[in-house]
């Protein structure tokens, strides 16, 4: 079901029966988030504190149409929100993605919005997380900032 209202448009391509008119702007995209390996992520996976790793993994790829309908400006960022958390990442187009599927490379930015539940098998569900995506002016946190709020006990480890 698509909600097309002028002030706050939510579009859910998986549930929609019709294609979105290209003239409409979408404020909030309901999408399915998947994560996975990429060459850039892999090549820098032993250099995770490097700017290269940041560049390779702190983005969200969207289909061309979803990218356009969200009205993302050049080199713009998106806020990805799931029931487990939210994260700001830069936005990219990927012609290989179908409507309503977004891709974030395996890494700390993707895992900010993945849930801990393992369904009794030990493995969280890293792919197929229901997410909402919107354009944002917020900045992408670097890897240190992402974990800055997790307080260490400090001092003598007991």
């Amino acid at each position: 079901m698509a909600f097309l209202v002028p002030d706050r448009t939510i579009y859910s391509p998986w549930r929609a029966k019709e294609k979105l008119s290209s003239s409409l702007m979408v404020i909030l995209l309901k999408a399915i988030m998947i994560s996975g390996r990429t060459l850039g992520q892999g090549a820098n996976s032993e250099a995770k504190m490097s700017p290269e790793f940041f560049k390779a993994t702190s983005f969200c790829a969207l289909s061309e149409e979803d990218y356009r309908s969200l009205g993302i400006s050049k080199e713009g960022n998106v806020l990805v929100r799931t029931e487990f958390g939210e994260v700001v990442v830069s936005a990219k187009k990927d012609v290989g993605l179908p409507l309503g599927v977004i891709f974030i490379p395996m890494g700390p930015w993707a895992n900010a919005v993945v849930g801990p539940e393992t369904g009794g098998c030990g493995t969280p569900q890293f792919k197929g997380v229901e997410a909402e995506v919107e354009e944002t002016k917020m900045r992408v946190k670097d890897v240190r900032e992402l974990f800055a709020d997790l307080k260490r006990m400090g001092g003598e480890a007991s």
Binding site: F84, P108, N111, A112, V114, P116, P124, F147, L150
Partner: peptide, 9 residues
Amino acid sequence: VSNFPRATV
């Protein structure tokens, strides 16, 4: 810390 979900981390 990179590869686990945030709540697990």
